[in-house]
């Protein structure tokens, strides 16, 4: 085979296959990508929340991108409890200081990092949240302490627009 010079037929065969493969890939990609979030879904990317009525020790849940977001006004004890934990005791070590912008306000996705259920408020062995689906316990900073979840509850991008309003996203 190797000593034979490629014929016109070989060239045509290779060229046709190559063009065919590129063409197929070009058609497949739109078919795959149409399943990704569309423009209208992406447009709902941010939401503003009024937090003036939330009392210390209470949590409100708001919907952002179809997911619940917990906004908890923490008490002094809860903040102290979250900050007194040793890093080596954590499954996913993160300082409480790095998870909040204002220590009084904990803002995070109310989604268990195991399989996506919504954990229950004021439950579990660490005074924070407890996921009823597969038994993950979170502390007062929303960090995973016990159970199958691999990470702490996610802190979304957010900012304080003013003292009473948080903008998520």
């Amino acid at each position: 085979m190797s000593d034979k010079k490629p014929k016109r037929r070989d060239f045509l065969f290779t060229a046709t296959t190559a063009v065919g493969a590129v063409g197929a890939a070009a058609v497949v990609w739109p078919m795959v990508d149409q399943m990704n979030p569309d423009a209208s879904v992406k447009a709902l990317a941010s939401t503003e929340v009024d937090i003036s009525s939330v009392k210390p020790g209470n949590t409100i849940t708001v919907l952002w991108r179809g997911k619940p977001v917990f906004i908890r006004r923490r008490t002094k004890e809860e903040i102290d409890e979250a900050r007194s934990v040793k890093m080596e005791d954590l499954i996913h070590p993160e300082k409480d200081e790095d998870r909040v912008k204002n220590p009084e306000w904990l803002v995070m996705l109310g989604v268990c990092t195991h399989l996506g259920c919504v954990p229950l408020n004021d439950k579990g062995d660490y005074d924070g949240w407890f996921c009823p689906c597969h038994g993950s316990h979170y502390d007062t900073s929303g960090r995973i302490r016990k159970g199958p979840a691999p990470w702490n509850m996610e802190v979304p991008k957010y900012e304080f627009v003013n003292a009473n309003t948080i903008k998520i996203g």
Partner: peptide, 12 residues
């Protein structure tokens, strides 16, 4: 996200 067509299980 690709399976959902969004950021959670929803209409898509």
């Amino acid at each position: 996200t690709w399976l959902w067509g969004g950021y959670s299980v929803d209409n898509p």
